[in-house]
């Protein structure tokens, strides 16, 4: 077992070579196997991520499909909130979707709920877009709610 003829004297050069070959054979078999699996799964993985992105875009854009879907990531309570904001051709919000967030479960994480996000529909840069003014913040999660407002504002500005 361990300690038997490790990297002792020169006689081991041949042995190291042999071990290297064996290891290389394993690597080749492993790589070959993975290549086959990769070949079969990769198209599906690419398709999945495209479908997911298109689905999110469709969800935030108006039914006509016109307008822009803008990705923003304002700073929330637990890190950046990745969100997609749909802006219609006249500069009004057509929909908001949270792609990923790390807000507190049961509290800030409630920003993903439609009840909160639907408030933004129809808002434009003329609106204050602030909690307690025109947006009902999530109870106990002022920071998360405000972050979403900041994100929507940023997207509206970018859309111009």
């Amino acid at each position: 077992m361990l300690g038997r003829n490790y990297l002792g004297a020169g006689e081991n050069v041949g042995k190291i070579f042999k071990l290297g070959i064996i290891l290389a054979v394993f690597c080749v078999i492993s790589a070959g196997g993975l290549a086959i699996v990769y070949m079969y799964t990769q198209p599906k993985i690419v398709l999945n991520s495209q479908l997911a992105l298109e689905g999110s875009k469709k969800a935030v854009l108006p039914p006509s499909g016109k307008g822009q879907a803008i990705a923003v990531s304002p700073r929330g309570y637990g890190g950046p909130i990745e969100m997609l904001v749909g802006v219609d051709p006249v500069g009004k919000v057509s929909g908001v979707k949270i792609l990923s967030q790390r807000e507190t479960p049961g509290l800030g994480a409630n920003i993903v709920k439609p009840k909160f996000l639907d408030q933004f529909k129809g808002k434009s840069l003329k609106d204050p877009l602030e909690p307690k003014k025109d947006i009902d913040a999530i109870t106990g999660a002022t920071i998360s709610s405000r972050a979403v407002c900041v994100g929507v504002k940023e997207a509206l500005r970018k859309a111009k």
Binding site: F26, C27, S30, G33, V37, Q42, I45, N48
Partner: peptide, 16 residues
């Protein structure tokens, strides 16, 4: 090597 091969396979399959 053996373990990581199977982990990578399950990673690809779950992702797909």
């Amino acid at each position: 090597i053996v373990i990581s091969t199977f982990v990578t396979i399950s990673d690809y399959v779950m992702n797909a």
